[in-house]
Design a binder for these strands. Structure first.
Lengths: 257, 257
DNA sequence: AAAAAAATCGAACGCTCGCTCGTTTTTTTA
DNA sequence: TAAAAAAACGAGCGAGCGTTCGATTTTTTT
């Protein structure tokens, strides 16, 4: 359920993936530590000075319970409307115990938001670097984003919906990382255009549209689930859609369904 | 700023638009009553029995102040986090005066949500019916949705972000209208496929992707504004993007940039 | 197994919330 | 312009909020 890309220990390639350019959802999960506790362990290590619990195993388990409870409650009513009594009940921890893991309600919000941002940036940057050719780079980034939002969907959903509650400083960071991921796509499109692989387009608009598709996957997940669309199908459809627009030659390309 | 499509009085075509199939943002604004008070007048007429103010002009003006205040505050911190004191200050009305316009805070939310839904359904259905050919139908619906979300952006943003706070019954209505607008697109795509104008595709996924692009326009408006993209440019880009994917022949179509 | 340390508990506190209602101001009526 | 009706006012109410902290339980150490 969770993904981690620690700054303490660099990411571990658990198995060699079939091909650098062409990976599916199963490959993606193999490539990263997707243990449900790994993101919580990250949080524990990052916020060790403010968390009052010494025992790592215990702390990580409770953080997991707390975050899951936060995601569950605030997906229904929003973070602001969630009371600490709601959270205490859902996480099976007393009020006092909760406050051993964060300073206050606002702090809890920031911890989750920050961890979410760090994770997204690290994973996407890593995937952009794997491919060399523009088309493969584009596919890598699109797929990585979709697959990542699949394994860490609650984090993505929460980060998007609760961004409003952030301070001006943190909002700036959110906008920066958004601009960053958009720039990654724009750069790929420009590279492709200069190589004659992609058409001359408004790359900013193309990148925006690509991002909006990826976003839909975690914002309207119930819709895709009810139609039984899996991450691979969706990713292939999106890449096919995008390629029909950006590719210089309209002839069929291998791997496009 | 607001659009109305009254159920009391049918929509008035204020001027003939150039062509039924090919309209731009200016045409769209001419076609509907976009007076900033019109949606508020709708609300007044719909909720006349619960609103304690008799004078229509006065009521409509205050409803406008109230809704604008709600949009302004809750776009920053969310509806739940908005206090009635916040609202009273921003709308320049006392606590007591506010409660002459709605029964309670929850009621205020429902009034806005319901009006937003009615407006969207009426406008989109009307635009789907204007064109005959699949390609023109598709363009009409895409443009109408984008242009509508442009003139009534606060309503769209609010409706999306605060949908979580709705009751199970109302959530069902939200899902129904979402499925409805998606079905409008799917039907067009199927019609086009049967006529040989469009390629054989997964129409559900195509419709979803189209909706996600439209959604991005009002969810991430600041991004497009900072790049000085106007509604016509965006709508043309989206239709071009979609057409490159769905059109049976890859040859250039007039009107696509 | 006793002592020390760590973790958890939940009643209680001060504060702010949504909302009411007797009063005042503004507008309409005659 | 005086009386009546409509609208707006805002201090005050009880409920429920986030947060604290001394007491209690659990775990670790010796």
């Amino acid at each position: 359920m969770f993904i981690v890309f620690s700054k303490h220990k660099p990411p571990i390639y658990k198995k060699e993936i079939k091909s650098v350019e062409d990976f599916d959802f199963a490959d993606f999960k193999k490539r990263f530590d997707t243990s449900k506790y790994s993101l919580c362990r990250e949080v524990f290590q990052t916020n060790q000075e403010s968390i009052k619990i010494k025992n790592e195993k215990r702390a990580v388990e409770n953080l997991y319970k707390i975050f899951n409870a936060v995601f569950s409650i605030s997906s229904k009513k929003g973070f602001q409307a969630m009371t600490m009594r709601d959270l205490s009940k859902e996480a099976n921890l007393s009020m006092g115990a909760l406050y051993a893991y964060f300073k206050n309600k606002e702090d809890l919000l920031h911890i989750i938001q920050n961890q979410g941002r760090v994770m997204v940036k690290n994973v996407l940057d890593s995937f952009e670097a794997t491919a060399v050719e523009p088309l493969q780079k584009l596919r890598s980034v699109i797929k990585a984003h979709i697959f990542l939002s699949e394994v860490a969907r609650p984090w993505f959903f929460f980060t998007f919906m609760e961004a409003r509650n952030l301070s001006e400083n943190e909002l700036k960071e959110v906008r920066e990382i958004e601009a960053h991921t958009e720039k990654v796509i724009v750069d790929i499109l420009e590279l492709g255009e200069s190589k004659g692989v992609f058409k001359k387009r408004n790359h900013f608009l193309t990148a925006s549209i690509i991002k909006s598709m990826q976003q839909d996957w975690y914002l309207k997940r119930w819709k895709y689930k009810s139609r039984q669309i899996n991450p691979d199908e969706f990713a292939d459809y999106v890449t096919g859609f995008v390629e029909s627009f950006v590719l210089a030659e309209p002839k069929k390309i291998k791997g496009v369904h």
